[in-house]
Design a protein around this nucleic acid. Structure first.
Lengths: 346, 346
DNA sequence: GAAATTCTGAGGTACGTAAATCAAAATTTG
DNA sequence: CAAATTTTGATTTACGTACCTCAGAATTTC
């Protein structure tokens, strides 16, 4: 039988009230007595029954999710996953509030985080933007004891407790490696190949890191591949379409395209329009309805994906654990880079 | 506030005892009264507080995991993950027992499942072997109301409730696609390429399915690639080593190897020994210490992986849900095929 | 219409923990 | 050494559900 507070009281030779005082850090216990109780706890291997404790406290974990109100499918999907979690929230003793902020707007994010500071929820998750101001607020949140999880885009070396997202450098490297290997066959050979890169914005860390990883692998392992200057499409389908169409028109010899941000609907439209003699090899991020269809059609060759549902559920699990002061299972919470070819679409 | 049994009693105009009788399917309630209560339940949107219910019942979920006592790293890792779950079990109200059976032994598996039938745990997970006898026992388990989850290797169209493992046909297709594309470059060209396939046993479904998917893609999309007859290494490193060494000696022109089972330590040893002028392209399954090292060294080019930890945790979640008659979150429980190149090793 | 049977209500105890009150004991302070 | 203070004990209520008993009401059966 699992030991209970009653067992501790018996072993330590104190009353239930004293055990409770020790367990919950309440005042009014001499250090001698506290020592006896703690000894009994460790000797019995007592672990508090969280379900019973939460029941007694009639506790609900209140979390805030700050999400950019982006127009692209990935962010819309992320929103949906959080809404799904809200729907399940009553059964999980959580109470999740969604706060929308304008995309790529550090000041709006800071303002939202400051509001969190006032509200004092049990935890907050947000898509980070990497600026000094944002870092500064996170430090204030940490001091206020509010657990923080960054979602999708990280803020390394800051006060955040955890990052629920993929390793974007590794993602970029993987894209580079696939690009290099796939190109080595039918495309390369006569001297070299030109590759275009479409990003959302170099201001967000995840995009910077993907480019970094991609370039590193290409430069090092596939020196015959030449990367054009990055196109910044602000994750906007319409903008992406014109940029890609322009680039394809100007550089007839483009052998590959790496789309490391969102807004792939535009990219795909441009590709469909530009049906030339030989289509370029395309590697994109995020499996959405449109990229999935493009993969199946052979317009896109590979899609690297992060599962928004996993990220949201992981963020919630981690916030809960942090709120309870429990350790997190790192292996469980690592968000993986999914690689989809047309053959392993789920 | 979430509605409770008290609210139901009040709304339905009955006593708490009657609500309890309805909720827990106890006898002694007229259908008119039952109707009133059920109406109140739906109108209030009542959902039973599982944590409180489990506390009241002082319930622990007892699960049995039947695992083959294989010598390869993957199965050893799987064992470890289950043991990890056992270690965490007290906090999760689970009580997991591990039963070891000899590998590739359908009769031993049947015997273990029959023992489960007697023990009547809250659920059972097992690595399936696809025979009539095994199917027959699962039907008896289903009739006994014991939730079943197949782990790693499935038993489709049987009485099992869920499969915690990857789609092996898709995995095989993915391997075929990578093999075809990677070979198209440096290896192919002058007419064709020869590929060897190393499996564990064609008696287990997962291996059959991987081969099926692999062959389908190669035959259809890469007709220049020729697949040698399958080698069956019984997931045994020593046997695999001699088989691969033999094959490499006999067929000097081998361009690729697809290792779809376990026992890769042997494969890797053979590859290291046989350092010829041009090394073959190698795609293997399961990321273990040895395949990871081989990937990093460039001896293996790609590894398809299933995360044993995820599979075990998913199996437990599903068994719990089935035991409680709750729905499972399909998206959460889908086990993904990880593709590792040397660039995205975790 | 009485007896037998079936329903229903009221109430309690339990699960393991939290949190509170109040009295009693121990300790410290002056 | 008495008074003030701190520490501890005993007890209670609560969280939401499960499960039990027993009495009384309603219904059915003869």
């Amino acid at each position: 039988m699992k030991p209970t507070v009653h067992d501790i009281a018996k072993i330590a030779g104190v009353s239930l009230a004293t055990v409770d005082r020790v367990l919950n850090g309440r005042p009014g216990v001499r250090s001698v007595t506290r020592g006896k109780v703690e000894e009994a706890i460790t000797s019995l291997g007592y672990v508090r029954d969280l379900a019973a404790a939460n029941l007694a406290k009639s506790r609900t974990y209140s979390f805030v999710f700050i999400l950019p109100a982006n127009d692209n499918s990935f962010m819309i999907g992320l929103h949906e996953e959080v809404r799904g979690a809200v729907a399940r929230s009553s059964a999980e003793r959580t109470d999740i509030r969604i706060v929308d902020v304008p995309p790529f707007d550090a000041r709006a994010l800071v303002a939202a985080l400051e509001a969190v500071l006032v509200e004092k929820p049990a935890g907050v998750a947000f898509v980070a933007i990497d600026t000094r101001d944002v870092r500064a607020v996170t430090e204030r949140l940490r001091q206020a004891g509010i657990p923080m999880v960054t979602l999708v885009s990280d803020l390394p070396d800051s006060s955040r407790d955890h990052y629920a997202g993929i390793d974007n450098i590794a993602a970029g490297r993987t894209a580079g490696s696939l690009m290099g290997r796939f190109l080595s066959g039918p495309f390369l050979g006569e001297g070299g190949a030109t590759v275009a890169v479409l990003a959302g914005s170099m201001l967000v860390r995840d995009h910077r890191e993907r480019l970094e990883g991609f370039s590193a692998v290409i430069d090092q392992a596939y020196p015959k591949v030449h990367i054009l200057p990055v196109l910044e499409g602000r994750d906007d389908p319409a903008l992406a379409e014109t940029m890609i169409a322009d680039t394809l028109r100007r550089n007839a010899d483009i052998a590959g395209i790496y789309s490391l941000g969102a807004g792939n609907r535009g990219l795909i439209r441009a590709l469909h329009r530009a049906r030339g003699p030989s289509r370029p090899l395309v590697i994109a991020h995020e499996l959405t309805a449109s990229t999935r269809a493009a993969l199946a059609d052979g317009v896109i060759d590979a899609v690297l994906n992060q599962d928004a549902g996993h990220e949201v559920r992981s963020a919630i699990r981690v916030l809960k654990a942090k709120a309870d002061g429990l350790p997190v299972l790192a292996a469980q919470e690592r968000i993986r880079i999914d690689i989809f070819l047309k053959d392993n679409l789920p």
